[in-house]
Every structure is written in C-alpha cells, then in structure tokens.
Amino acid sequence: MTSAIEVHDISKSFGENLVLDRLQLSVSQGEIFALLGPNGAGKTTTIEILTTLVLPDSGQALVKGYDVVQDSTQVKRRISVTGQSAAVDEVLTGYENLIMFGRLMGLRTPEAKDRARELLKQFDLDDAKNRRVATYSGGMRRRLDLALSIVRHPEILFLDEPTTGLDPRSRQDLWHLIRALAKGGTTIFLTTQYLEEADQLADRIAVLDHGRIVAIGSAGDLKKQVGDEYLEIRTRTGDICTTFPIDGSVASVQAALHSLDERFHHALVSIRRPTIDDVFLNLTSAPTNRQPTEHAQGEEQ
C-alpha cells in the first residue's frame, strides 16, 4: 500500500524548546489517522510542517511522495487544512466564502457557485447561506471551515483539533461529515486531545508526547495498553468501595453486580473506561507518582 504521508526523523525546536524529537510516522492512503496528545505535545507543529507552513530543522517529510520542503507547491496542490480557529471571512456570507475559495482553487465563477450550493446543502448551511458568517454559531463556522477545505476534493485533509470547543451535538455532526469524507477516499490526518474523538474516527491513533510517538495502533490496542473497562461501586459520598474489571458485555456487568450483597444496595454504580489521563499517565515515559490505580484494586477482587 502506498503511503500518503511519511515522516522520517523530523526534529523541530523553537528556541530552546524541542517540540518534535526525531518524529517517525507513516499514514496509509485512505486512512483516518489521529495524532493524539496533550497541549504542547507537538501536534500543531507536526501539521504545520506537513502542510508546508513551518520548516523542519532536520529530517524529511513526504506528502503523496513530495518533499514538503523541496516540492511545497506540489504538496499544496494535494492537501487542505482546517486549523484550530475557523479561518473564514466573517464579513462575507457563507455562500460568498465558498465561492471565494472555489475561485482561489481555480474554479471558474459558475463552477464555484455550483460547488458552493452543493456544499451548503451537504453541510446543512443552506438556510444560513446568505447570512454573514459573523452571525454563525461555533458549530456552523466549523462546518463552513471544513466545507472550504474540500471545495476542490483534496487528496489529504489535515484537521487540527477540529472539534475543540464545540458542544456535543456539533461535534457529532462534524464527526459524521469527516467519516463521509473518508468514505469518499480522502486520507484524513487529524489531531485531537480527546481520546473519544480519536476512538470514534480514527483507523489508527498515534500518541504524541514531548515530540515523540509513544504508542501507535488502533483505539482498541491503545486501550488495552492502559487497561480494560471496569465497574466502579462508590458510596454516596464518593468513596470507592470496590471495582470489577469488565469486558463491556452485559454478562460481565451482571456477574459483577450479582456478587454484591445488600450492604451495597444504596451504593452508586458507574462504568469507567480508560481516559485520556490513563493513556498518558501509562504511556508517557516520565513516570508520575500515580499509585496503583483503582483498576489494580479491582483486580484484587
């Protein structure tokens, strides 16, 4: 399978601060790849290097086989980027924004108008098409931003934290749109700080920490590395009484609950999944002083 993106030993510092440390990764054609990491892990810098905005200090990055430094124009012709802030013109309407970017991408005016109307429908912005973007909600702006990125179908779409700051409903809408794009054959490279987002969207997830990939694999692989789901029993005051490892099935939950006697009838039940915190605390090299977790206690049961 051909690689859409290949990164070999990329390093980048800003002043004293080493942001990317001999980064290695490869993304296959047509895949949804998520770069997961906390703030400051180097996610945005990675995207900026791959989209020709920032020069690496050393190493090589290829996008569709073209070097991001030597052949930046070839790279630019094959990619689109949706950054963290919705890069849309507030004074123009949604329709005008789409026409403008269509024209910039080489469509003639009638083509750009047709494409704009098509995208407005597809992204559920038809009712708002003649309103200035300044009046749009956060979710609408992000949808418009995404629509602008695919005016001319890019081969690779980069999404830098596409849903940060959105309400759950808007986030779902955006995930839906991103999945549809991937189905159409677009390779998607996204960054996120939410495990759930990576989990929902990505075929493969790379965990980035201090400029290095500390784990890579499917969502399932990563969660296994941090531990399974578990059932937690707490008192009304929030103290944990006991936990049980479960595999997510009804049977495992039933078995766990059956083992509780009437002392626990007023206790609270919740299901815990590995969180982004767990992933980081477990995968990052710097050990933190997190003592054996509740999960470990669960295993004692």
């Binding site: 012709r77 094959r78 013109d89 004074v91 123009l92 005008e96 403008m100 024209r103 910039l104 991408m105 080489g106 098509e118 995208l119 597809q122 695919i150 001319r152 179908h153 890019p154 081969e155 549809a180 794009l181 189905k183 159409g184 054959g185 677009t186």
Partner: peptide, 30 residues
C-alpha cells in the same frame, strides 16, 4: 455523496492573477 468523489483530484496550476482578482474583490465587498 457528491463530495465522496473516488478520484480525489489535484488542483491544476493556478491561472495568473486570479488570487489577486478574487482577493481584491473580497476586500472591496468588505
């Protein structure tokens, strides 16, 4: 599914001064 074009196309070479024209138009509207 209109976006879901299976042959992602790359952008052709830019015709001259289109960017200038489009962005001047944008600034005038603004």
């Amino acid at each position: 599914t209109t976006t879901a074009s299976h042959s992602a196309m790359s952008v052709p070479a830019r015709p001259n001064l289109v960017a200038e024209k489009v962005l001047i138009h944008r600034s005038l509207i603004r």
